[in-house]
């Protein structure tokens, strides 16, 4: 008979297999430690897309939303700037118009007929008011004339009171799909033609293209006081009402923009917080896990150091 059999002998671990298994364990512990150390050093839970593909996609989308939200905040503050400038300017326009109106009204209170110097003084005052209004109508914000619509011009009105802008109004995007109008067109505030405040500035003959204020100046200079009181003054009132209406529109838009601006900031904050929750490492948790991993690593090292300290060889001989 032979003492060698054809079946494999019973499986007994050899020193080589024990060492191999221990080294595998050590490597595993080491890679766990490396992953935790990377998280702690970068401060992010996801450092490669493969760490958590779905979360990585969320972080990317959230990052884009955050960049967009920051831009909405910037847009809203730009819109507020425009509207603040607009409402401020229209307030000045109203007070200028009030002083012109009271000057013109003073014509009726006194028997001015024949007092050429006084009338001419009032005419000068109105003409100066007209120039002041022209200046206000050409107010700019960040280099752009705020009453010129989207016209490519730094001035809304020429020195003769001709509108240089267009009727398309500038807007700002303050939320996804939401735009606010940030200005009113000069023609909406100051009117056009004979009913306009600025039209025909400097033209000494009345006509259909000559506006309310210039007509008053011309009529005063011509001594036509009845015309001033009965026709021109009511026209001035009408024009003033138009300005007041425009001021109200702008004021409402300003409040609207303020609300959107606050909302955009809140959204940005919320996104920032949410992004932090998504991608930031929970430091105490990661540190605890790292300590655990280090302990496991040391234990594996210790176990490896203990391997094959004894064998049957020691007890023979």
């Amino acid at each position: 008979m032979t003492i060698s059999s054809l079946s494999a002998p019973a499986l007994v671990p050899t020193p080589q297999t024990i060492a191999g298994q221990l080294i595998t364990n050590i490597n595993l512990d080491q890679s766990q430690m490396a992953a935790l150390q990377e998280q702690i050093s970068t401060g992010f839970t996801v450092n490669q897309p493969s760490d958590n593909p779905a979360l990585a996609a969320d972080v990317m989308t959230m990052n884009s939303s955050l960049v967009r939200a920051k831009q909405y905040v910037s847009n809203a503050s730009d819109a507020q700037g425009w509207l603040q400038q607009g409402t401020g300017t229209l307030n000045q326009v109203m007070s200028t118009l009030q002083s012109i109106t009271s000057a013109v009204e003073s014509v009726s209170g006194q028997a001015l007929t024949g007092q050429g110097a006084a009338i001419s003084g009032i005419a000068h005052q109105v003409a100066a008011g007209l120039q002041q209004l022209l200046g206000l109508a050409n107010t700019t914000y960040n280099g752009q004339a705020i009453f010129a619509g989207t016209g490519a011009t730094t001035q809304a009105y020429s020195s003769s009171g001709t509108y240089l802008g267009n009727a398309t109004l500038p807007t700002r995007t303050v939320a996804p799909g939401t735009q606010v109008t940030v200005a009113v067109a000069g023609t909406t505030v100051f009117g056009t033609g004979a009913g306009g405040l600025l039209s025909g500035a400097g033209t000494t003959t009345n006509g259909p293209a000559v506006g309310v204020l210039q007509t008053i100046v011309n009529d005063l200079n011509a001594g036509n006081l009845t015309q001033v009181m009965n026709v021109d003054l009511p026209n001035l009132q009408k024009a003033t009402n138009v300005v007041a209406g425009a001021a109200a529109t702008l004021g409402a838009a300003y409040q609207n923009a303020q609300a959107f601006s606050a909302q955009a900031s809140t959204t940005q904050q919320a996104l920032q917080t949410e992004l932090g929750n998504l991608q930031d490492v929970n430091l105490p948790k990661a540190a605890t896990q790292l300590t655990e991993a280090q302990n496991a690593y040391q234990a594996a090292l210790w176990a490896t150091a203990q391997v094959s300290q004894s064998s049957l060889v020691q007890f023979l001989g």
């Binding site: 972080v59 990052n63 960049v67 967009r68 920051k70 831009q71 752009q144 500038p170 807007t171 700002r172």
Partner: peptide
Amino acid sequence: ATFPEPNGQGISTQLANFWSAWDAIAQNPG
């Protein structure tokens, strides 16, 4: 490793900034 995402300055960040840059034109078209 070709794509430094999601935390690096990868293409996704570049895209987001690119879109927002168009609003800067809207703020000052002239």
